[in-house]
Write a protein that binds this DNA or RNA. Structure first.
Length: 403
DNA sequence: GTCAATTCACATGAAAGAGACCACGGTCTAGTG
DNA sequence: CTAGACCGTGGTCTCTTTCATGTGAATTGACGA
């Protein structure tokens, strides 16, 4: 494209009838003015948190629900509202929202406490201090504030899975240590069985109240999509059936509204880029493919070489022989691959874990089977759509310098 | 034929080590008046 | 005399290894009918 051509391109871009009117409505951080299909949950949460406005400590609260069922959205919405009323009535409330899954921010005990303290306005070095020192600093800054802190810990199950439930025990004991301030904890978890796996003492004090967010059904997702897309898109850009199909996709995945919104947004982007005036079902299919592909290459690129080598081995074996693959085969190929690439091979123990991680990430399907006399192993198959395999192979070969 | 013991090929768990990163306090060094 | 460089100690964090233990059904082999 010449430079003059570029100017034309941009001019053209502006003139063209944009598909979006307000794209951010479809992004996951967006908080709408009203939340549909969650009246009951909102009422319950509001009831539980309302005492805060009278400076009484609300009960700790635990919220369960699969991804994309509006947990985070609802909590953010309600805490915002509470803050507003608190401001009007001159009540001293502080709310903090922390996502425990964020890497290098709040995914260990130290980091979580440090992050909370930072948000309270006290700088804490990212490492180097003993953990109980950080606790002390946290207590004293909170004590100085003399406030009621509502602490929202999103994806708390991830944190506990990684670091153990000691941290929860410490958190629930905060109030015993504090005189001037109080803390209410709201835990949000995707894992419905999570609470059964933690220490009973912690359990009783942490989940004084429990609320479950059920998945949306296809109809509900449809109306959510309808409402958002009315704001996000220019009128009549959605071809008939697109919304319905999009909702159906998402309902299939345990009613994940976030996914549905992402899907329709990406479909819109694809349509816009290919200068279509309307979003069709074809765009939707393309969008689904693109999302999956982006997700995969994102995962692969951010993983260490060892992970890539293992995945490459799996793909290679999968190409050569149809059907299922076993851990032993992968490890053998992986070892020789390390030899050719000049990588120090990891132990089988570690590779076994890597395979398990891949399963979690949804790149492969692994299930443990026993072949009786012939041992016990994982039965592995790729769960990547076949058309993506060449793309992935390319990425891997590049990452591993195999060309 | 039946049934318990054996056996395979890993899975899974726990603990601990290596190496990167970092804060803190003490000591050394060079520059300044 | 003092600010800044430098060093040692002690801490966290991630990735990994080492060692130990667990596991489920095909196979084996003893046993009795």
């Amino acid at each position: 494209m010449t430079q003059k051509g570029l100017k034309l391109f941009f001019d053209d871009f502006i003139k063209k009838n944009a598909i979006f009117t307000d794209k951010k409505v479809l992004q996951s951080q967006y908080i709408p003015e009203s939340i549909v299909h969650r009246d009951e949950q909102i009422r319950q949460v509001a009831n539980i948190l309302a005492p805060a406005l009278r400076v009484e400590k609300p009960s700790n609260l635990f919220i369960y629900g699969k991804t994309g069922t509006g947990k985070t959205l609802t909590i953010k919405y309600i805490t915002n509202q509470i803050l507003e009323s608190a401001k009007e009535n001159n009540v001293d409330i502080f709310t903090l929202y922390i996502n425990c899954k964020l890497k290098r921010i709040a995914d260990t005990e130290y980091r979580l406490i440090a992050q909370i303290t930072r948000q309270l306005g006290k700088e804490i070095p990212p490492t180097g201090l003993p953990t109980d020192e950080v606790y002390k600093i946290f207590y004293s800054t909170l004590e100085k504030k003399k406030t009621l802190l509502i602490l929202v810990l999103d994806e708390i199950d991830q944190l506990v899975k990684k670091t153990g439930d000691e941290i929860l025990y410490n958190l629930t004991r905060i109030n015993e240590e504090l005189k001037e301030s109080q803390v209410t904890i709201i835990g949000i978890s995707n894992d419905l069985l999570f609470i059964d796996h933690i220490d009973p003492r912690v359990k009783s004090s942490l989940s004084e109240e429990e609320i479950i967010f059920p998945p949306y059904n296809a109809l509900q997702i449809q109306s959510i999509l309808k409402e958002r897309s009315d704001k996000a898109f220019r009128k009549d850009v959605l071809e008939g059936g697109v919304l319905e199909k999009c909702a159906a996709y998402a309902a299939r995945e345990h009613g994940d509204a976030r996914r549905a919104l992402e899907l329709i947004r990406v479909a819109g982007e694809i349509a816009e880029r290919s200068s279509h005036e309307k979003i069709t079902i074809k765009h939707l299919d393309l969008a689904e493919e693109k999302i999956e592909r982006d997700r995969l290459s994102d995962i692969i690129l951010t993983q260490p070489k060892q992970f890539q080598a293992t995945l490459y081995s799996i793909i290679k074996i999968g190409n050569e022989k149809k059907g299922v693959i076993f851990t032993g085969e992968i490890y053998e190929l992986y070892k020789s691959l390390c030899d050719t690439v000049g990588l120090r091979p990891l132990t089988q123990r570690r590779v076994s874990d890597i395979i398990c991680e891949m399963d979690m990430l949804g790149i492969i399907n692994a299930s443990i089977i026993s072949k009786g006399r012939y041992g016990r192993t994982r039965e592995i198959s790729l769960s990547v759509p076949p058309q993506s395999i060449p793309v992935i192979t390319n990425i891997l070969e590049e990452g591993l310098d195999l060309k």
